[in-house]
């Protein structure tokens, strides 16, 4: 489904702030793969997701999604393939627009936006049904401005929006990191549900080792812009935190002082 071939990206090349964020990274995702991505700060996790989403062009390598070479496509042109949820709950929704308007914008992801009504009566009914399924009572607030919602409600809405028009790939960039633990748990549950119901190919960055182990069918660990660990299937199911930390030490060639320095324990 997703194929990265030898992708590299350096920020601020030729300056004192030069930072090689991705170095010759290759990755293949099969349809339906749910990959959790872990790694320390600056390991290149978000850079990887941004490279796939097309926030900026990569320096080298190719990115293929659903058989299409998207390496040269700007962000808005590859959006038709990709659903995204960001770390910052403010980033995924338009605060001054109504709930139903936000959903309607997402329902037209990657489509031509012409002079038809922005929200039709028919889709309103659909949205009400979908929001009811969230169980957050949002179905009664369809014309409220999204800016009035809490962070957790917004992330739930953004998740719904990302999956509204079935994406070939769902990118979750630490989408629970800004939420309190109870809310984060709920949003994660919802993510699992949406991913499995729609059989979405998914990449989820997390700082939480337990979440990385308990969710998805595959786990990759990054360090210095490379993938240093890739565990899937039965091995992933049996994985423990202790083992993960040891494997990190083996692959990265250095020992974590404590797991907490680079990865939040929980």
């Amino acid at each position: 489904m997703l194929e990265l071939q030898n992708v590299s990206k350096t920020f601020n090349p030729g300056t004192i702030n030069e930072k090689k964020a991705l170095s010759g990274l290759s990755l293949h995702l099969a349809p339906g793969d749910f990959v959790t991505v872990i790694g320390g700060n600056g390991a290149g996790k978000s850079t990887l997701l941004n490279a796939i989403a097309g926030v900026w062009p990569v320096d080298e390598g190719r990115i293929l999604l659903d058989g299409t070479d998207i390496t040269a496509l700007p962000e808005h042109k590859r959006a038709y393939l990709i659903g995204r949820v960001f770390q910052d709950p403010m980033m995924g929704t338009a605060p001054n627009m109504q709930l139903e308007e936000n959903l309607a914008l997402a329902a037209r992801r990657g489509q031509r936006r012409g002079l038809k009504w922005g929200v039709t009566r028919l889709e309103r009914e659909d949205y009400r049904e979908l929001l009811k399924n969230l169980g957050l009572g949002l179905e009664d607030r369809m014309t409220a401005k999204v800016g009035l919602l809490s962070g957790g409600q917004r992330q739930a809405l953004t998740l719904l929006m990302a999956a509204l028009r079935q994406p070939k790939l769902l990118l979750l960039d630490e989408h629970t990191a800004a939420l309190d633990p109870a809310t984060a748990e709920k949003v994660l549950e919802l993510s699992d549900r949406i991913v499995s119901e729609n059989m979405l190919t998914t990449m989820m960055i997390t700082h939480n080792m337990t979440d990385a182990i308990c969710h998805g069918n595959r786990l990759i660990m990054m360090d210095e812009g490379r993938i240093i660990l890739d565990i899937s299937g039965e091995a992933k199911r049996r994985l423990t935190k202790r083992e993960l930390i040891d494997r990190f030490a083996q692959s990265a060639g250095y020992q974590l002082e404590t797991d907490a320095t680079l990865l939040t324990k929980n």
């Binding site: 989403a53 962000e75 808005h76 042109k77 959006a79 038709y80 990709i82 995204r84 960001f86 403010m90 980033m91 995924g92 929704t93 338009a94 605060p95 001054n96 627009m97 308007e101 309607a104 914008l105 997402a106 037209r108 992801r109 990657g110 489509q111 936006r113 012409g114 002079l115 038809k116 009504w117 922005g118 929200v119 929006m161």
Partner: peptide, 27 residues
């Protein structure tokens, strides 16, 4: 006009450019 798909896209662009790009709007 600002109730149509195109008009909504203009409003979304002013409201949240990052989201708009992610939803495929040419901001």
């Amino acid at each position: 006009y600002f109730g149509t798909e195109q008009g909504s896209a203009i409003r979304a662009t002013g409201n949240n450019p990052a989201m708009s790009r992610a939803l495929g709007i040419n901001i």
